[in-house]
């Protein structure tokens, strides 16, 4: 059953005032809605060194009402596997183990342990909050940063390569559930986390998490930026259940009714694209269109 209105979401908050995340943090909103979809009393979260570590606060005070196990940067998939095995071995039933890692911890340094965990069919959920760079350390380039973005390690030329297609890599593990989401579409995000919670085996959700300080847009535009990403098909909302692909939420409406905006509309509101050339915008448009048509085709075929 799809959630129809924000007022249907649980009222209880699991992130209390006092988090150390930046104002208008895309991750913070993602985490807020995700925890509502989970049962935080029976959830164990695995977190690598990342913005999430900062969000979880400085010992001995945490603003988050959930058990959180921190692990080194590369180890998230393995730490989650160990938590699952440890709970099983000691007879603690009914817990959902959820890893929350950023794009650096997923696309780059964490890809090996994630792949291992997925290949073994570990019974856990992995949420990648993709803010398209190493934001915690000050906006360095990651393999998830889009082409044309200025980062502190691509300061002059801007990033030359397109974003890595991590979702395809995850999908290649043939796990039962893969989805994308956005905090700008909280009902879709909530429903996907809730659905993933009930599925056995490895589940992967990638959330596009806009980052005002890293991307260079005003805090007030957080939701707008996430929506614009969907409206331009830079970020496409979909889910793949047991190999069956379907577009969801805004992306579904975009496929059905058209009205896709241009990449130029998306990049102009972000200072990270201040050096992007016409040619790079053109290339980014083509890259985005190619993906979008693939997704529409897969949606029509109803399978991968």
């Amino acid at each position: 059953m799809a959630t129809k209105a924000a007022k249907e979401l649980p009222k209880e908050e699991f992130i209390l005032p006092g988090t150390r995340s930046c104002a208008a943090c895309g991750l913070m909103l993602t985490y807020r809605h995700s925890l509502k979809a989970l049962d935080p009393g029976k959830t164990i979260v695995a977190v690598p060194a990342s913005c999430m570590t900062v969000l979880h606060g400085v010992y001995p005070i945490t603003p988050v009402k959930v058990i959180c196990v921190n692990n080194p940067f590369a180890a998230t998939g393995a730490a989650a596997s160990g938590i699952v095995a440890g709970l099983k071995a000691t007879g603690k039933a009914g817990y959902t183990v959820v890893a929350f890692a950023g794009d650096g911890g997923t696309y780059d340094i964490g890809i090996q342990s994630l792949s291992g965990a997925l290949e073994r069919g570990t019974d856990f959920m992995y949420v990648c909050y993709d803010n398209e760079g190493y934001m915690n350390t000050g906006t360095q380039r990651s393999s998830a940063s889009p082409a044309g973005a200025v980062t502190t390690t691509t300061p002059i030329l801007a990033k030359l390569q397109h974003k890595k297609d991590m979702l395809r890599i995850v999908e290649a593990h043939r796990i039962p559930y893969v989805a994308t989401a956005s905090p700008s579409f909280p009902l879709d995000l909530y429903d996907k986390v809730r659905k993933a919670k009930e599925i056995k085996g490895s589940r992967y959700i990638e959330v596009h998490a806009p980052c005002p300080p890293g991307w260079g847009f005003p805090n007030k535009d957080l939701i707008k930026m996430g929506k614009l990403a969907a409206d331009t098909a830079v970020h496409v909302l979909y889910e793949i259940v047991d190999g069956k692909f379907r577009l969801t939420s805004r992306s579904l409406r975009l496929a059905e009714k058209g009205g896709k905006k241009t990449v130029a509309d998306y990049v102009k509101g972000q200072t990270r694209f201040k050096k992007i050339t016409e040619g790079q915008i053109q290339a980014l448009q083509e890259f985005t269109d190619r993906r979008w048509y693939e997704f529409m085709e897969r949606h029509q075929n109803g399978r991968s």
Binding site: V69, P72, A75, A78, G82, A85, G86, G116, R120
Partner: peptide, 25 residues
């Protein structure tokens, strides 16, 4: 009667036994 994880590296081997130990195993 044990869970045996055929991990993909030694880094992951130690990471997973640390986490399992934190669960009390």
């Amino acid at each position: 009667n044990a869970e045996y994880l055929t991990v993909e590296s030694e880094h992951s081997a130690m990471a997973s036994v640390v986490a399992a130990s934190q669960m009390g195993a």
